[in-house]
């Protein structure tokens, strides 16, 4: 018998395996033509045949995404710290930020193309635009949740606003910050791939666009899977960092947070 723990560990792989088998069985069983919906094995063959270009475009997308994500983290931290530590800035910026966040970022791509030409820069900027919002919101929330009593303790010691930010605000905001990184990195992939499909001649997005216009559906699916894998790997990486660096927040479900 498998123990509960091993089962939990294996569960995601089992689901992926089952889905793969169903996919293969359905496509082969119903003889779906490959230009509509390729079988998993066809996608695999296509991946091997186009290994080098796929890797080249995947690297491009990966670096583009990381660049956009990096800018989003810096901007998100600064804006979040400002919004979270000053009620005036909060009031002033929040409607604007929320309004901005409800615009589909794909709408910005044509603008960015006019400004920067097609290629990597619009993709980086789209990744940035789509992923900085959760960082801002989470950092601001983390900073704004200082209990009044703790603030009294610190102020009656003579602590300055900056002391309070450094000793309490930022450490308290860290779990929120790391939680937002997981969301932001996956959004950043969405942003860069969107931009690549519309306005680039490099990257997985472009590769998929080119493949679909030549009816090479197996390659399109290979591209989708590659994006998915990169997203999961980065997500897990940040989830791991979160557990390592802010473990105190998770062992303490009903403590003074």
């Amino acid at each position: 018998m498998l123990s509960q723990k091993t089962l939990i560990r294996l569960a995601p792989w089992l689901v992926i395996l089952a889905l793969g088998l169903i996919w293969e069985a359905v496509v082969v069983g119903f003889q779906v033509p490959e230009f509509l919906f390729p079988s998993l094995s066809a996608v695999w063959r296509s991946t091997l045949t186009h290994w080098d270009p796929i890797m080249m475009h995947a690297t491009q997308t990966f670096l583009t995404t990381l660049a956009g994500f990096g800018i989003a983290v810096v901007v998100g931290l600064v804006l979040g710290a400002a919004v979270g530590s000053s009620p005036v800035i909060y009031k002033a910026l929040y409607p604007l930020l929320v309004g901005f966040n409800s615009i589909p970022k794909v709408a910005f791509v044509p603008v960015l193309v006019v400004w920067f030409g097609i290629g990597t820069i619009p993709a980086i900027l789209t990744a940035f635009l789509i992923s900085f919002f959760p960082v801002v919101v989470n950092v601001a929330t983390g900073l704004a949740t200082l209990e009044p009593e703790l603030e009294d303790v610190l102020r009656s010691l003579g602590a300055s606003r900056f002391d309070i930010l450094k000793k309490v605000g930022l450490p308290r905001a860290m779990p929120y910050f790391f939680a937002s990184l997981k969301v932001a990195i996956t959004l950043a992939f969405v942003g860069s791939v969107i931009s690549e499909t519309v306005a680039s001649n490099l990257g997985i997005g472009y590769l998929m666009m080119a493949a679909s216009s030549s009816m090479d559906m197996a390659l399109v699916f290979a591209g989708l899977i590659v994006i998915g894998i990169m997203g999961v790997v980065m997500y897990e990486l940040f989830a791991f960092a979160e557990r390592r660096l802010t473990g105190w927040a998770h062992r303490n479900p009903n403590g003074a947070l």
């Binding site: 303790v153 009656s156 010691l157 003579g158 309490v168 450490p171 860290m174 927040a249 403590g255």
Partner: peptide
Amino acid sequence: GPQKCVGMAFQASNLLPW
């Protein structure tokens, strides 16, 4: 203005969990 060098404790311990 806030007195420096007062000690305070409340009903909630307000210890920093990290």
